[in-house]
Amino acid sequence: MQPILFDLGNTTVKAWDTATNNFCRLTSEEFIDFLTKRPDQLLFGYATGNDSILTGMKNPIRLLAADDAMPLKSHYQEMSTLGLDRWVLCNSHFLEGNDSFLLVTMGTCITYNIVKEGVFLGGAISPGWEMRFESMHKMTANLPKAEYMKDSKLLGSTTMGSLRSGVDVAIQMEIAAMIEEYINRFLLKKVFICGGHSNRLPNHSKNYIFAPVNYELHALRRIHDYFFKNGTL
C-alpha cells in the first residue's frame, strides 16, 4: 500500500497521501482526523515538533531517527541534535546524483548545509524572517511588528521601513554572502535552495537551483524508496 508521507512541524503538518496524490498542510487536529480515515496506510516521516499526536494512532508508523542508515556519510559531531529535515533533504539531494553541494533551507530558520564528496560536513543555522521580526517587536518597548514586503528598500525612511530593510534586505544580502563564502571555501559548484520562503530570494546566479513545490515531501518519498530497496523500511 502506498504510504502517507509527513513532516510534523511545530504548528502544522505537511502530508502527502501518495495513494491519492493529495498534498496538504494541516493542523495537528486536522492531521488526526485525516489519519482516522486511512487507518491502514503506513505513516513515513519525521517530527521536528512534538510527535505526541502520533501516540495511539492505528496506522503502522515508520518515524525517522538520527541513527537510521542513510546514503550519506557524516562528520557532524552531534547527530542526535541534527534536524531531521536538514538530514533528509541532504540525503535526498545526494540520491539525485549530487555528491558535492550547498543546500539552503528557508523556513522558520535559515540553514546552510554542506555536502562534499558524499559526506555531510555541517553548516549554519540562522533566524528566519518571522523570528527576526518577532524578536525585534517583543524584545523592545517601542518597535512595532513588521512583516515581509517584497519591495523593501535598503534605505528605511520610517521605522517600519527600517525594520523591513534590516530583515528583508539584510537576509538577502546575508544569504548571498554566506553562499559565496561556502562556495569559495569548499569549492562547491551547486547551490540548492528550498523551503517555504525560498521564493523571497531572487535567483542571482545560474548556479542556484530552486526546489519545486512540496520538495520536502518528495524528498521523503525518495528516502522511503531507498529504505524499501535496502530492506530497512
Rank of each mutant, 00 (worst) to 15 (best):
G156H: 13
M70G: 04
F120C: 00
I125W: 02
G83N: 04
E96P: 00
N98K: 13
I61S: 13
D99N: 11
H75S: 12
S126N: 02
E96K: 08
Y112E: 00
Y76L: 10
F120V: 00
M149F: 03
W129L: 15
L89T: 00
S92V: 05
K58H: 02
N91H: 07
G156I: 01
T140E: 06
P144D: 08
L95H: 08
A66W: 15
L64F: 08
L89W: 02
E130G: 06
G107W: 04
L103D: 04
L103K: 04
M79G: 12
M136G: 07
E78C: 09
T111S: 12
D85A: 01
M149T: 13
E78S: 15
S162R: 01
K150N: 15
G128V: 02
T111Q: 06
H75G: 03
K73W: 07
L102P: 07
D67G: 05
R62V: 13
L163M: 12
W87Y: 09
E78K: 14
L82Q: 09
E96Y: 03
R132A: 02
V88T: 04
G97V: 05
N113I: 03
N91Y: 00
S135P: 06
V115H: 06
M79P: 14
E130S: 11
G122I: 11
L95Q: 13
W87S: 00
I110A: 07
S126F: 01
L121E: 12
T158I: 04
A124Y: 10
W129M: 15
F101G: 10
N98P: 05
D85G: 03
L72E: 02
Y76H: 13
E130H: 11
E134C: 01
A146S: 13
I114P: 11
V104S: 07
A69D: 07
N59P: 15
T108K: 10
K58V: 05
V115P: 08
L143T: 09
M136P: 04
S162Q: 03
S152M: 06
S92P: 10
P71I: 01
Y148I: 01
Y112Q: 10
S135W: 02
T105M: 10
L163W: 01
G128R: 00
S135A: 15
